[in-house]
């Protein structure tokens, strides 16, 4: 009975996620957001298509891993947190609680939706990069395995923190503003905009604790030749450490997220939603 109910909830969640993804794709403003993002990626790669940092090492090979990492961060953390905060305010979360196994279906749904968006964006980005830069982008079989492995682990680590951020903030507008700034700052200190080795020592310390630095590191190792490891902080590729750090973040997130989500859902009540709705009407 119980396992049956759980499996049913997961199925319902996947169905829910796919429905919401379809709705999102058919909403012009949301599709436009993705199209503009991909267009910017295309332009940046086009402008840097012939530039080389060192003989045989293209600038684009640094840019593509950073783009993939930022996309991962944006979709799994920022995007997911925005959805959670918004749906907490509009009553979706409490509605889920009023249904049997509702929270399980809800979180499965939100993960499914995030996965769909992530896979689409990453695949399209790689296709665009391959078209503009030509060929295999210097990625071999082993590199492909590293990218896939890091995408999965990184997704687990970051989605759970997306849930955490989504449950900590109260107001969708504050996630929109502060969250956006935080994502930018995080991308900077994680060496996704400018190599970490060129930044002050204290930034390097923070950066190396962040899963983003290591996700970017692993992606770079796949796109760049062996020798380019010399540009990295440790002077070489450290894939074992990368997987260990991101894995640790994933475990921490998996332990923390369900607890927080349940806690927040428990505190949410209909009258609190009504009170916030009134407050929102006042602000307009």
């Amino acid at each position: 009975m119980n396992t049956n109910a759980n499996a049913n909830a997961v199925r319902a969640g996947i169905r829910r996620g796919i429905t919401e993804h379809w709705i999102s794709l058919r909403t012009p403003s949301e599709t436009a957001f993705m199209v503009i993002g991909l267009a910017i990626v295309g332009v940046v790669l086009w402008l840097n298509r012939d530039t080389e940092i060192a003989p045989g090492v293209a600038v684009a090979s640094f840019i593509v891993p950073s783009i993939l990492t930022i996309q991962l961060l944006f979709i799994t953390c920022y995007g997911l947190a925005t959805v959670v905060v918004t749906e907490r305010e509009d009553g979706t979360l409490i509605r889920s609680r009023s249904l049997p196994n509702g929270l399980r279906a809800y979180s499965t749904g939100i993960l499914t939706r995030t996965m769909c968006e992530l896979i689409e964006t990453i695949v399209l980005t790689i296709v665009i990069a391959a078209v503009i830069l030509g060929g295999s982008l210097g990625v071999d079989g082993a590199g492909l395995a590293v990218i896939a492995g890091m995408l999965i682990l990184g997704t687990i680590a970051l989605t759970t923190f997306g849930f955490v951020i989504g449950t900590v903030f109260r107001n969708p507008r504050s996630v929109g503003g502060w969250g956006f700034l935080a994502v930018g700052a995080l991308a900077l200190v994680s060496g996704l905009i400018q190599p970490l080795s060129t930044m002050p020592a204290w930034v390097q310390v923070i950066g190396q604790g962040s899963p983003l630095y290591w996700i970017g590191h692993a992606f770079r190792s796949a796109f760049l030749p062996e020798g380019a490891g010399a540009f990295e902080l440790g002077g070489g590729w450290q894939l074992a450490i990368a997987f260990a750090v991101v894995g640790a973040w994933a475990v921490a997130g998996i332990l923390l997220a369900p607890v927080l989500l349940r806690r927040v859902a428990r505190r949410e009540t209909g009258s609190a939603i009504e009170a916030r709705r009134q407050a929102a009407l006042q602000r307009v």
Partner: peptide, 13 residues
Amino acid sequence: RAKVGVVLQSWRD
């Protein structure tokens, strides 16, 4: 939960 139906005062989800 499966035996209880709930209609809250306000939802707009």
